[in-house]
Simulated assay, not measured.
Amino acid sequence: MAEFGPCEDWPVYWTCDIDTYSPEVTGYAVRAASRVLWALSGRRFGQCPVTWRPCADDCGDFTSVPLWDWRVGYSMPPWDFYRLPYCSGDCLGGCSCTHIPTIRLPDSVSRVVEVKLDGTPMATGTYRRDSRSLMRTDGHAWPRCNNLALDDDQPGTWSIAAILGEEVPDSGRLAMGELACEILKASSGVDCRLPPGVTQLVRQGVTIQYPDMGQLLKEGRTGLYLVDMFLAAENPDGLKQRGRVYNVDRVLRRRP
């Protein structure tokens, strides 16, 4: 699955005075810092709006448990495709003692924004989210078919609009401010605290030891206090991305 970067810039708690910099330069620094911290923190933080278009494998076959194509639409997807099973909600596995049509959602869903049926948003109270499930509570089943040739504001379609990902914590916003400030200074030719290429400097009998930049980068650190405190707390093992589980025996399906 392709991962192209954070969907939007991370929020910033500035740790320096940015009044002397132009909005254009400040924007460059924020975008650069967002991408760096997103990658170093394991591609975990930052929220993305998505719209799914569920559709069963075979709309005419009711003898087997259907699988759903999750059609995702956004410009810079961290996850570009889901194919998830449909859970009927019957009294199986302790799920429920009444029939509650249920769609399973990915763990990364932060909240469901809107559900449309036949181009019309469903009313509040006709569905609810419970952990990883989206349950329909108005006594009707979720549609098996979805006319993917039409936009989701047309009859015969349905869609789920949601927000994926975790919100950037306060420690991440402070880390953004520190890193973006140092990038601003470096881009303007001003002395900054980003680690230099040298590891040791001797002047007038005084030895100054600098961290090894190459080793820092290998460990997923930058040498900046707030940044490295955030990374040590949120990604102590230096993971490159969130864990995933793949079924090698699963039949490959077409992608949108």
Results as ranks from 00 to 15, higher is better:
Trp52Asn: 08
Leu224Ala: 01
Asp69Met: 06
Tyr28Asn: 05
Ala39Asp: 06
Arg253Gly: 11
Thr126Asn: 12
Gly197Leu: 14
Val202Asp: 14
Val198Tyr: 10
Arg31Ile: 00
Asp69Arg: 11
Leu150Asp: 05
Trp38Leu: 01
Asp118Asn: 15
Pro256Ile: 03
Pro155Ser: 06
Gly165Thr: 01
Cys97Val: 15
Cys55Asn: 09
Asp61Trp: 15
Pro195Ile: 04
Ser110Phe: 07
Cys59Ile: 15
Leu217Gly: 11
Ala2Met: 05
Gly197Ser: 08
Gly93Thr: 03
Gly214Thr: 14
Ser64Cys: 07
Val168Phe: 03
Asp19Ile: 07
Asp130Asn: 10
His140Trp: 09
Thr20Glu: 09
Ala161Pro: 00
Glu8Lys: 10
Ala141Gly: 10
Cys91Asn: 11
Pro54Gln: 04
Thr26Lys: 02
Arg71Trp: 11
Gly5Met: 05
Ser75Lys: 08
Ser96Pro: 00
Leu117Trp: 05
Trp14Pro: 08
Ala29Met: 03
Ser108Tyr: 04
Thr102Pro: 03
Ser41Thr: 08
Asp151Leu: 13
Asp237Met: 04
Leu174Arg: 15
Lys218Tyr: 09
Phe81Gln: 11
His99Tyr: 14
Arg53Met: 08
Asp17Gln: 09
Thr102Cys: 13
Leu217Thr: 14
Val72Gln: 01
Trp38Lys: 11
Gly125Pro: 04
Trp14Phe: 09
Ala233Met: 02
Arg44Leu: 13
Asn146His: 04
Tyr210Pro: 11
Pro106Ser: 02
Asp170Gln: 13
Asp237Cys: 00
Leu105Ile: 14
Met135Cys: 10
Val168Gly: 01
Ser34Ala: 07
Arg244Leu: 15
Ser110Ile: 05
Phe81His: 12
Glu178Trp: 04
Ser110Gly: 02
Val251Thr: 14
Ser131Thr: 05
Asp118Gly: 07
Glu166Trp: 07
Val202His: 09
His140Ala: 13
Leu216Gly: 03
Leu231Asp: 07
Cys95His: 05
Tyr210Leu: 15
Gly165Leu: 01
Gly93Lys: 04
Arg253Asp: 08
Gly177Phe: 05
Leu105Phe: 02
Thr63Ala: 13
Thr137Gln: 05
Glu219Lys: 14
Cys181Gln: 01
Glu234Tyr: 12
Val245Cys: 11
Tyr127Arg: 03
Leu134His: 00
Tyr82Gly: 05
Pro236Arg: 01
Pro121Phe: 00
Val65Gly: 12
Ser41Ala: 15
Val245Trp: 15
Lys116Gly: 02
Ala186Cys: 12
Met122Val: 10
Gly89Asp: 04
Asp170Gly: 01
Val168Ala: 04
Leu37Asn: 09
Ala186Ser: 15
Trp38Ser: 13
Tyr246Val: 15
Arg129Thr: 02
Gln209Trp: 06
Arg132Gln: 08
Leu117Arg: 03
Leu84Gln: 08
Thr126Leu: 12
Trp14Lys: 13
Arg31Cys: 03
Thr126Ala: 13
Asp212Thr: 07
Leu217Ile: 09
Leu201Arg: 10
Leu179Gln: 03
Leu239Ser: 06
Thr20Asp: 13
Arg255Cys: 14
Thr157Val: 01
Trp142Gly: 00
Gly172Cys: 07
Gly223Trp: 10
Asp153Ala: 07
Ala180Ile: 00
Lys240Tyr: 08
Asp90Ala: 11
Val202Arg: 13
Ala161Met: 09
Tyr82Phe: 10
Trp158Asn: 01
Arg203Met: 11
Gly223Ile: 05
Pro54Glu: 00
